[in-house]
Design a protein around this nucleic acid. Structure first.
Lengths: 212, 212
DNA sequence: CTCGCCGGTTTTGTATACAGCTTGCCGTCC
DNA sequence: GGACGGCAAGCTGTATACAAAACCGGCGAG
């Protein structure tokens, strides 16, 4: 997206994720325009986009609020992600070629580097993780599925989830990625799907009880 | 949505469905604004909305085109719908109360009236069908799931599908709705889900080979 | 005391002008 | 003859002013 619109989107999303724009609070276009240093028009675009990504809720009378997430909401989003990404990886299993498998392995290598580093770089983890999942989506070769998943289910919760990860969680996540890659290399859709669902399920529980 | 924006949306969607705006053709804001008798602003909103509903595809450089649907695309959308609506009806099975079941039965009654009428009113069928599916979504009581399904998977293809229905297809559809209602009345999620998936699968095949 | 109506105020929707980017064509240079 | 570069036209992005709709307070009637 072009400059102002993208800027407004990133600005607002980051403030929502950080809690600066608290769940339940109203988003007023003019106020946000001032905040982002752009006019109302790109802010409107950004709000609409955040709405489709479930960051923002809209009342029947067109007023926007920061979405509030209950435990049930979170669990459900993970369930949906499980179904959709499970389907994606199932498709990927019958389509992946050697070069793509190699790229997946390379991404996993960079995940391992994060793991082996002396200090935990969660942002680097997030980047490599996103790359892994979106490469699988690319291999699945379905624009429509990508549109669904990319826009709607992945972004909102993943970022906050990873914040709750300790080194052990990261290690498990890395192992799961390795397994999924193996399943894809074997071309086994059932195996791949089961692993992906388990992978996402574990992320859910890490999210719900970070203390454990 | 308020007047002009909604009007533009409905206008454009109907022209896309009718083929007047052909798949692959470029959507130019100014041109469409003239077509709908509104300014570019609401047209932009409408295009963005149609984009999230997969009616419209957007290039990397922000130009919009009417989406082109291959057989594979259609099959895949039905698969996704099956997963998501299957999940919805599964949730509904453990939540529906007597009043809601009664409403589902009432909707099915109106479907039967369409069936028994001397001339086939496909629009009336569509209306009642949409009501049935959205009531199930309501019973499932998940705003997020509703946001996903309502916006993204249902609309694009359903309308064209129903056009291909003859009276026998309508009768089968009615019977399936009745069965699903029974499964919900029993509170049996497995049954309900299986029926829903079958229901949607059959719609797919009616869509792919209307001649049969 | 409650309910509903009414006006000011706030917030969103729409139109329009202008700016910036993309694209495709045409001419020139290698 | 081909390719690269620049120029012009067309389309989209952004800002802003004005219109319409929704909210909220207070006031009056039942």
């Amino acid at each position: 997206m072009s400059k102002a619109s993208e800027q407004a989107y990133l600005e607002l999303r980051s403030r929502i994720l950080s809690g600066e724009l608290a769940p339940g609070s109203q988003l007023k276009e003019e106020e946000l325009a001032a905040l982002c240093g752009v006019s109302r028009t790109p802010v409107r675009d950004a709000i609409r986009r955040l709405e489709t990504e479930l960051f923002v809720r809209r009342t029947d009378s067109q007023r926007s609020f920061v979405a509030e997430w209950t435990m049930e909401d979170i669990e459900e989003v993970f369930t949906l992600r499980g179904m959709l990404e499970g389907y994606a990886v199932r498709r990927a299993a019958t389509r992946a070629d050697k070069a793509q498998i190699a790229r997946l392995r390379a991404i996993n290598e960079s995940l391992r580097e994060v793991l082996d580093a002396p200090s935990l770089d969660v942002q680097a983890y997030l980047a490599a993780n996103a790359e892994f999942h979106s490469l699988i989506l690319e291999i699945a070769a379905s624009d429509r599925l990508a549109a669904l998943l990319g826009r709607l289910v992945m972004q909102p919760v993943v970022q906050q989830t990873a914040m709750a990860y300790d080194r052990e969680q990261l290690a498990r996540s890395y192992n799961e990625h390795t397994e999924i890659t193996a399943a894809l290399a074997q071309g086994d859709p059932d195996w791949a799907e089961a692993l992906m669902i388990a992978h996402i399920r574990r992320a859910l529980h890490a999210r719900l009880s970070p203390a454990e």
